[in-house]
Every structure is written in structure tokens, then in C-alpha cells.
């Protein structure tokens, strides 16, 4: 009696496992099914090998930086929280906070108080990508460090990994709080639900349509931010870097940022 009951339970267990496996295989087959329709990039999409931004700090003032930030916030429906749970893709800070460790004791006042624009550096060797356990953040062939909010489990390892504070987590449920009170400024772009990480995507959705990033476009007249392909020797960014001395944030960490600052 004792023996056969045990045997029965064992067989039951193993067969449940078996059925489970078979049905999940079925499911996989179903997902893969379909008529083999094709997916292609849009014909106008901008194509590059290593996208980069060059920020000309001399051309930045309060107004220009606000224009760039505003354009990004509107394009990506970024909620405005002023507390420690704030979400920011692009923002400003002072020299000593942007380049800690490179502070000169007696800085020219214009540099010391200047608003520096900060955003994801789209590092060539991104630690956030290295640590992500689900590939929710990864590096595209054109260098963009991309974020897939559908995949993110919200472990926030990438936030610990990023040495530039470029990542924000959705602590709050913006969809059911903030966006109930405010109209999302861009109805063609999603908002983010609670529990996922977000950050600048270098406007991947705009590049796909052949447009330059929103912040760059917003300050186009002043040329304070220039967008281009670093691997293309004739690009505007390469030309700027040839002619000016530019620095990057925390180069000693080996992440190789792709945002340059002309100071």
C-alpha cells in the first residue's frame, strides 16, 4: 500500500511535468507560426555606426537648455515629479557635479555656474547592458543603448551599474496618477507603467522616421547640440571634435561615453 501510493505520486508528478513541457512547446510553436510576413526598417530611417552628440557648452544658456529639455519631455511624455523619485532623460547640473574628479580649484566663473546638459552617454562599453539579467537594455548596432520596457523586470541593477545617474525608475504609477491629471503631450508615444526603468534612447523612434533627436532639433539654430555618426570621418560631429578640445564624463571608468562636451 505504502509503496504503491508513493509510486503513484511519483508517476503523477512526472506526468504533470511532461504535460507542462509539451504544452509549452505547443505554445512556442504557435508564437512562431504566421505567414512569414516581412519586417523592414522605414525607408527614411537614419542609419549610423556610432551615434554621438557633441554639446557645445559655450553656446548653452538657461534658455537653450530649457528648450532642449522641454522638447525631450514633450516628445517622450516624461512626467514631472520634483521629489527623489523624479524621472529625467535630459537635465542640467553644474560642472563640479558633472565632472567630479576633474574639478579645478579655481574655475572661470562662466564654467563654474554654466548649466551642463546631462543625458545617457550611450557608452560604447556600457555597464548597464553588461549587468541587465534579461537584455531589457542592450546596445544596438548603431551604438544606441536601447531600453525595452516590455522586457524589464525592474531589478534596478542597471541603475547601480550606471556611473552617470542616467537611469530613472518608475517608483510611482504615473499612468494612474500623473497622467490622469495631465494630458500626455505626445499622443503618438507611450508613457511608462510602474516598476520599469527608463532613460534617453537617443530618440530611436525619431531616427526610425528620419528625424534627428528632439533635443538637437529644438536647439538647431544655436548648434549647441550636434548629432552625428562618429565612425563617419566627414560627419559634423567629427569635424567639431577635430577643431575643438572636447571632454567626456568619467572617461577613467572605461565606459567610453559618446556624448562630448566642448568647454
Amino acid at each position: 500500500m505504502e509503496r504503491s501510493r508513493r509510486r503513484f505520486l511519483k508517476i503523477l508528478g512526472i506526468s504533470t511535468l511532461g504535460i507542462g513541457t509539451i504544452s509549452s512547446v505547443d505554445l512556442l510553436a504557435m508564437v512562431g507560426k504566421g505567414e512569414e510576413p516581412a519586417y523592414t526598417p522605414e525607408p527614411d530611417a537614419l542609419v549610423g555606426k556610432r551615434w554621438a552628440l557633441v554639446v557645445d557648452v559655450k553656446k548653452l544658456d538657461e534658455e537653450t537648455t530649457q528648450k532642449a529639455i522641454e522638447a525631450c519631455n514633450r516628445a517622450h511624455n516624461i512626467p514631472h515629479f520634483e521629489d527623489e523619485e523624479e524621472i529625467k532623460w535630459i537635465w542640467t547640473d553644474e560642472y563640479e557635479h558633472v565632472f567630479p574628479g576633474q574639478e579645478a580649484t579655481y574655475l572661470p566663473e562662466e564654467i563654474e555656474k554654466k548649466p551642463f546638459l546631462l543625458l545617457c552617454n550611450h557608452c560604447a562599453n556600457p555597464p548597464c547592458v553588461r549587468v541587465c539579467p534579461t537584455q531589457a537594455t542592450w546596445q544596438r548596432a548603431d551604438g544606441i543603448v536601447m531600453m525595452d520596457q516590455h522586457r524589464c523586470i525592474g531589478c534596478r541593477y542597471c541603475m547601480a551599474g550606471c556611473p552617470f545617474g542616467a537611469r530613472s525608475f518608475n517608483w510611482k504609477d504615473a499612468m494612474n496618477t500623473y497622467w490622469k491629471e495631465h494630458e500626455p503631450p505626445n499622443p503618438t508615444y507611450p508613457v511608462r507603467g510602474k516598476g520599469v526603468v527608463e532613460k534617453c534612447t537617443l530618440c530611436a523612434e525619431r531616427l526610425a522616421e528620419g528625424k534627428i533627436p528632439a533635443c538637437v532639433e529644438a536647439v538647431q539654430d544655436s548648434k549647441a547640440i550636434v548629432f552625428g555618426d562618429l565612425e563617419d570621418p566627414n560627419s559634423e560631429v567629427r569635424q567639431l571634435l577635430r577643431e575643438h578640445f572636447a571632454i567626456r564624463r568619467k572617461p577613467e571608468l572605461g565606459t567610453s561615453p559618446n556624448v562630448y562636451y566642448i568647454v
Binding site: 510576413p37 519586417y39 526598417p41
Partner: peptide, 18 residues
């Protein structure tokens, strides 16, 4: 599901239907 992955992950934002 496929649309999501193709657009977000593979950057292919144009679907050529059957």
C-alpha cells in the same frame, strides 16, 4: 508580440503584410 520585438528590439518598424 512580434510587432513589439521587431519595432523595439530590431528597429524594424515597417510591416509588410501577407
Amino acid at each position: 508580440n512580434n510587432w513589439r520585438d521587431e519595432a523595439v528590439r530590431n528597429g524594424k518598424r515597417l510591416y509588410v503584410a501577407t
